[in-house]
Design a protein around this nucleic acid. Sequence first.
DNA 1: TAGAATTGCGCAATGG
DNA 2: GCCATTGCGCAATTCT
Lengths: 176, 176
Amino acid sequence: MPVTKMDGAQFLVVFSMCGFKEEPVQMSKVSQQNTTAETNGVSVIFTQANTSGLQQVPQLVPVSPGGGGKATPPSKQGKKNSALDRSSDEYRQRRERNNMAVKKSRLKSKQKAQDTLQRVNQLKEENERLEAKIKLLTKELSVLKDLFLEHAHNFTDNVQPVGTESTSTNPDGAGQ
Amino acid sequence: MPVTKMDGAQFLVVFSMCGFKEEPVQMSKVSQQNTTAETNGVSVIFTQANTSGLQQVPQLVPVSPGGGGKATPPSKQGKKNSALDRSSDEYRQRRERNNMAVKKSRLKSKQKAQDTLQRVNQLKEENERLEAKIKLLTKELSVLKDLFLEHAHNFTDNVQPVGTESTSTNPDGAGQ
DNA sequence: TAGAATTGCGCAATGG
DNA sequence: GCCATTGCGCAATTCT
């Protein structure tokens, strides 16, 4: 399935397959303006917020639900905070890397699930093969046993009554 | 795959495999708004923003970009819009229901994956059982055959005229 | 402590 | 219209 988008919307998708690390070459720039729409959205929001008269308040966002004490801690703009500042490059890069990792991880997960399904099929086939072999061996064994019974006297009496031919019936259920 | 798009949307997909230096074609425009994530991001932002104390005006979210015919079409607050109005009850209820469905679906999915893994184990055990049985049957057969060979003369020398029989030695190529 | 990998979660598009 | 799926990004956690 495809994806979808919206009317008139322009979409840009960047798949960076290889380098997970540095790759995002200059994503900074990209994201700067867009890339992930979120940034976009964010910027929009920010803009609006500012427009509302709010200054840089939106900087640190209290992401955590319950009441994360993390966000909006003291009030320093140290390196630490830059990581929480949604408008910072560091934040953006961090998100970008995580998004890649997430994609990678999910892909891996799907692959594994698929492999497992395949494994099931392999095992099923193997099972059928084994069952067939068992069937064959069982039959073979049965024939041999019958043969034995048929000529049992040859072994016990050392042969003679040749003409008798006892019952060839298979008295015992050699089969399992 | 990945992305998608919709009506009239313009889509740009850039695959940066490793050494490609694609240029962010006018990302500026691209990101107008959109894509899932973006929209997502936007909404999230709104929420969080609010949390931050910012009073946003989340009303109608500019989901579709400039030309979006769907969102923010004319300017009526008909039922149609209520669905897009992130602050509307209908929207909220819809989201709520979907979130439930998503959870349910994911749970189901996980359950299935787990069942598959279990299936693999069952099959493995079954396989071992079968292999063991084959081993046993094979051995049994081997013993019987040896026994036959050991007394082969009984069949060939001592016994014979018996109807037709003797020939039945070696029933078949024990092979599989 | 940093960064990658996972995981739970919500949103939106789409399938049925 | 509704529920089920699916891709996606965010953030919290866990793993390295």
